[in-house]
Design a protein around this nucleic acid. Structure first.
Lengths: 187, 187
DNA sequence: CGTATCATGTAACATGTTACATGATTTT
DNA sequence: AAAATCATGTAACATGTTACATGATACG
């Protein structure tokens, strides 16, 4: 039911991982699509183990550290994930704070709003750079047209991310331009 | 602090509204950017009233119905909203369920995945149509270059929405095409 | 004659975020 | 000497969703 469950399974469908690995992948590699706190990952893994969606395949003990518990997806886990994947669902709300801020731009002096937009642009440029780096990384190890290769899916999702950032940048630039025009008209 | 507060203020900055009005605007007109339940709207309005961000300007009693309580934003409310609007903040995660589903597309038979994508496309086409209708509505009552007109902001946000839906559609079409190619190669 | 609308609100539940706790080791 | 890394996990808090409650009237 909960979304986090399927996010975890999506990663485990590709390779066995520990809770810690999953957190890393979400917060570093998978970012900025997703994020998960330890309080969600660890309890969910235990629950999924008791429901036989995953199994514990090894417990590595490096002397002093807490035991590293590595989980593998089961066949039940795979079919559960596949069923969820093709299950129809209403699409999400967009829900981006900055869009509400933009909805208030009429209250803000144009010069100030332009500064804000430039800040936002920098952040989106950084994200775009991350996606583009990932694209280069992945496209090397990918056989064209093999849609059953996990990399096919990774690439398509990253491509979405990159396109999204380009859209955001273009939108910011357009707004900046309009605000600039109105500044010049005032003079 | 909470986001809902600023969403409410954003609407009240344009005109006085009741809690019911706000819910309507969010769930109908403002959709699909945002959504709010009554349990968030009504208590938040009371809280904001006690903090003097809004004031109750009228209580309409239509015989049998619960009293309709209309709120207006105060000057404190306006400056609070304006400050929040220009306050820098890290940009949001994208977080769309379907992107996780797409991340699992390698597990799904291409023909099935194509069907799913077509379903999603329909939903995004509907949203695009909503945005385009709103654009026509709004652009009529808008003086070009007047960035202090609330409609200027409305238009820019809706434009973002429309561009987003076009991106989503293009991405779906691209994926469908790739999946189709791999189907033909299998034959 | 059942359902939708107006209009407030509460309660129960699900989900997500931030901070904390442990504790040796490696890096700065 | 301080901070980051690995690795598990818990607790407190904030936010969001779904369902319920009231109750007269208008609509199909």
């Amino acid at each position: 039911m909960s979304l986090i469950r399927y996010a975890l399974l999506s990663l485990l469908a590709r390779e066995p991982l520990s809770g810690y690995d999953i957190k890393q992948q979400m917060n570093d590699r998978f970012a900025p699509f997703w994020k998960a706190g330890s309080n969600q990952v660890y309890p969910e893994l235990s629950k999924m183990e008791s429901e036989e969606l995953v199994t514990l395949i090894s417990v590595e003990q490096h002397s002093y550290r807490p035991a590293r518990k590595v989980y593998e997806i089961t066949d039940i886990g795979k079919t559960t994930l596949a069923e969820w994947t093709i299950e129809p669902k209403e699409v999400e709300k967009v829900r981006d704070d900055f869009l509400i801020k933009a909805y208030n731009s009429w209250m803000i002096p144009p010069a100030e709003m332009i500064e804000r937009l430039k800040d936002i642009k920098v952040q989106h440029e950084e994200r775009l750079a991350i996606y583009e780096r990932k694209m280069v990384e992945l496209s090397g190890q990918f056989k064209l047209f093999d849609t059953s290769d996990p990399n096919f899916s990774s690439i398509s999702v990253i491509q979405f991310g990159a396109q999204y950032e380009r859209l955001y940048l273009a939108w910011c630039e357009d707004l900046i331009e309009k605000l600039n025009l109105s500044l010049q008209q005032q003079k």
